[in-house]
Design a protein around this nucleic acid. Structure first.
Length: 256
DNA sequence: AATAATTACAACCGCCTTCAT
DNA sequence: TATGAAGGCGGTTGTAATTAT
């Protein structure tokens, strides 16, 4: 015991501060650690996670132990890929509850909130986008574009130009992002331009873009654009230097 | 066969809520 | 009522495995 005992400020600070890093292991769990934690919980049950690491002979913090048990070791967890029925249920529940994963998991026995969240972020979100559905609102993208251009923006001063600009940015960024062209700052603008001289053909030949044009058509009509495709192509070629500079000109990173 | 890109998922982090004192 | 511990949640990151080039 140090001189000063309970009242010593240094002692108080040490008790309140987190333990030094060397006392706590991080990263992937080993099979031995899993066995220790499983044996401890089977013998003592869950709860009081803060002390579990120590009592189970693990150099892990309580949070880490709890997470490992609830997301992986719990015996009622069903591991393995999601069935199509489960995927449909997740989409349905997400439309109702949003990203309240614990709520969604409660309606899917055997699945953890972490698993569902991961599956949503890696698979389902993309699938909805490909179907032309916004994964946040679960509404068709065409409907959202329409709202954006005709209601949110188009009724304010200087609206038409703003709406056109917003609309074109969305299309152009998508076209560049989804094309096979991956320029870098070291490529240089001139060679990038030569690579994309026929970018409109990439856009037209890409079936996803065709679908995107379908979504865009009613918005274009609302803005008084007779043919959105030619307008976007003109915009894209005209604004290529600007797009290149804003996206890739400031770093050596490749385009994502 | 080697390398790059993408995918899948375990784990961490920070914040919030609840509860006991 | 204020405070701190504990548990829970959602967002994000790191990385191993897989697939594409």
């Amino acid at each position: 015991m140090e001189v000063g005992g309970e009242g010593n400020i240094g002692d108080v600070m040490r008790r309140l501060s987190p333990k030094p890093d060397e006392d706590v292991r991080k990263g992937a769990w080993t099979a031995e650690e899993d066995n220790k934690l499983r044996a401890y919980v089977e013998a003592n049950g869950t709860g009081h996670w803060r002390s579990v690491g120590k009592k189970a002979g693990l150099q892990r913090c309580g949070k880490s132990c709890r997470l490992r048990w609830t997301n992986y070791l719990r015996p009622d967890i069903r591991h393995g890929s999601f069935t199509s029925d489960e995927e449909e249920l997740i989409i349905e529940l997400h439309a109702t509850h949003g990203s309240r994963w614990s709520l969604i998991a409660a309606k899917m026995p055997g699945r953890t909130d972490n698993d569902i969240k991961n599956h949503w972020n890696t698979r389902l979100k993309k699938r909805l986008c490909d179907m032309g559905i916004d994964p946040v609102s679960h509404k068709p993208i065409s409907e959202l574009l329409w709202d954006l251009a005709t209601r949110t923006i188009a009724h304010s001063p200087g609206s038409k130009q703003a709406a056109k600009r917003c609309f074109s940015d969305s299309l152009l960024n998508k076209a560049v992002r989804e094309s096979c062209i991956r320029p870098t700052s070291t490529t240089g603008l001139s060679s990038f331009q030569s690579e994309v001289t026929d970018v409109k053909n990439i856009m037209i030949s890409n079936k996803g873009e065709e679908k995107y044009y379908d979504h865009a058509a009613p918005v274009a009509a609302a803005l008084g654009l007779d043919d959105v495709r030619y307008w976007v192509e003109d915009e894209l070629l005209h604004r290529l230097p600007e797009i290149w500079t804003s996206s890739f000109g400031k770093s050596n990173e490749t385009c994502h």
